[in-house]
Design a protein around this nucleic acid. Sequence first.
DNA 1: ATTGTGGCCTGCCCGC
DNA 2: TGCGGGCAGGCCACAA
Length: 260
Amino acid sequence: MPEILEIEYYRRLAHRSLDRPIASVSAPDAWYLKGDTDAARLTGELVGDSFVAARRIGKLLLLDLGGGVALGLRFGMTGVLEIDDDEGVDQLRYASARRDPEWVRFSVRFGDGGELRMRDARRLGGVELDPAEDRLGADALSLTGAQLRSALAGSRAPLKARLMDQHHIAGLGNLLTDEILWRARLDPARPAGELDATTRRRLHRHLCTTLDQLLERGGSHTGDLMVARERGGSCPRCGSALLRRTIGGRTTYSCPAEQR
DNA sequence: ATTGTGGCCTGCCCGC
DNA sequence: TGCGGGCAGGCCACAA
């Protein structure tokens, strides 16, 4: 499950693709091309040009072309970025380590012989030219307290669902959100708009430190709750049996004793 | 607008 | 040993 941390690793890896003239594009899977993007348009926009910047908004990776168009890459749950046969992450939870050539849904060959590839077994990711960037909320890795406040304000949705709503905060997925709320000792089911200022600041603090720490450790799957995130798991802090629920349409683990 | 639900995709794991 | 069902979750369409 690439979440914001994995896409940040991909963005750093993607620096290696900058300023290398593009010789050809392979987009064999039409289903993988989103919006009005098709193989012919991709070839027309990319070939002969180069990527000049690698940006990221939440889980969306953006490679800017010299001509002004942006190539948007979404990785879904199992998407992996490879450049010149190096991968952006060592291991992706739920993604296979196999490198089946059939799983390459999109690739860009550079004039120097190197290649950028998107490998995605389950085809939940996608490629789109000029994706709608303005539909994404504030980026979670640089989220300010004011941005968190405005993202939660007035919402009656469960706190977890609101934190994962990419239109309000971009980048948080299921594992990171469970980890953050567990560290902040907050019930994922609490109505998002009902946090008082003190509690909201606590959440903001844990959100920032969790992302920083897990980015250092190596990814979304390195959280402290992770080892217990299975049926029958118990809280790594207090030992209580963890609660397993569906919140915001996602399997959610929380400690009923500590998270209030 | 907000919130909830279902479906997409398919590899993998478990139980029989 | 093979098979079938459930599960994983990012994202979108849709309904109320």
